[in-house]
């Protein structure tokens, strides 16, 4: 076949050789020598009639299932019955249709030209003419209007259209750098119970919030009693732990530094906190350094103090942003 830039497809079994492709390329032109009125049971009226009964029987089951659905609905509904009945209704309806199409409907394979799916070369030339009629008068004569006026004007107007998008939410501002922890905030559980320094058993763990901000998700922290175990604190954070008698109490942000899930699994034997979402694992005795998984930063530690009346309080907010990283996290 000769290679042209836009090869046109109209040759073939019933292409231009017999004229069909050229004269009526579109719609599909079925050559007259092909007959597709044949169907499997055409010449066998008895079997065709029997097939009609089979199809009717399937559709009768459809109707029965429909009645069943009405009864089930009126008696209060039950998903299991509805499931069986819907399955039965649709399946029998479909089977009837398929049998009908397969045995009683003409649909024998025939071949036809694919016809043209591209335009004639003359039409291709003509459209360029039409287009340039417009672009000529728009661009060659009034080019400055487009290039020097419309583009900058559109740019400015376009920028104006972006501004309303800023109404969608507050700007982050400092929101990602701080939590609701404040100096002197008591550690309270989900139920609003303030924690006393003796309330947590050795190897016990609790989820806590700053008093007054229960369920503020970013402030969620876990508080643990490591007993006499030595927690290697990061530089300058040695006094974040509260030691009182046999208790060694430490608190860490519960928000994973990887993708922000709650780090809610605790392995007491290895003293590890594990995030169930992506299995980031933090070693509590090593200042919650990540020891496995995709997290790359330790869970921030909450500086704790004990009030004279024995209640646990936060000395300050976390000293670094909690949760997953972001572009200017370290920029203060």
């Amino acid at each position: 076949m000769a290679e042209t830039k836009f090869p046109r497809v109209f040759t073939g079994a019933h292409g231009p050789e017999d004229g069909a492709g050229e004269t009526t390329p579109w719609p599909d032109d079925v050559p007259p020598d092909q007959d597709d009125t044949w169907y499997p049971l055409r010449d066998d009226p008895w079997r065709a009639r029997r097939m009609e009964y089979v199809i009717a029987a399937f559709w009768a089951i459809t109707a029965l299932c429909g009645l069943g659905l009405i009864v089930v609905y009126c008696t209060g509904g039950e998903a299991q019955y509805e499931g069986w009945l819907l399955l039965g209704a649709f399946a029998t309806l479909g089977t009837g249709l398929l049998l009908w199409a397969r045995y009683l409907l003409p649909g024998h394979d025939i071949a036809a030209s694919r016809g043209h799916h591209v335009s004639d070369p003359e039409e291709r030339a003509a459209i360029v003419e039409s287009l340039s009629r417009g672009t000529d008068s728009l661009m060659s004569r009034r080019g400055f209007l487009v290039k020097k006026v419309l583009v900058p004007v559109g740019g400015i107007f376009g920028v104006a259209a972006i501004f309303p998008l800023a109404s969608l939410g507050n700007r982050p501002g400092r929101a990602l750098y701080h939590t609701k922890w404040y100096s002197g905030a008591r550690l309270v559980t989900e139920d609003g119970q303030a924690l006393h320094v003796d309330d947590i058993m050795v190897d016990g763990i609790l989820t806590v919030f700053p008093e007054g901000y229960i369920n503020d998700s970013a402030s969620a922290a876990v508080v643990l009693n490591v007993g006499g175990a030595l927690v290697q604190a990061r530089h300058g954070q040695a006094d974040f732990e509260v030691v009182s008698g046999a208790n060694g109490i430490v608190a860490f942000s519960k928000i994973c530094t990887h993708a922000g899930c709650a780090v809610s699994l605790f392995n007491v034997f290895s003293m590890q906190l594990i995030c169930p979402c992506h299995q980031s694992t933090f070693n509590i005795l090593q200042d919650c350094e990540p020891v496995f998984g995709p997290a790359s930063r330790p869970l921030p530690q909450l500086p704790l103090l004990v009030r004279p009346d024995g209640y646990l309080i936060a000395a300050t907010d976390f000293v670094e942003p909690v949760g997953p990283g972001f572009w200017n996290r370290s920029g203060d």
């Binding site: 497809v9 109209f10 040759t11 073939g12 079994a13 019933h14 292409g15 599909d28 079925v30 597709d36 649909g107 024998h108 394979d109 025939i110 071949a111 036809a112 030209s113 694919r114």
Partner: peptide, 8 residues
Amino acid sequence: EHNIVGSR
């Protein structure tokens, strides 16, 4: 490549 065979 230039014909199509199937049912209507």
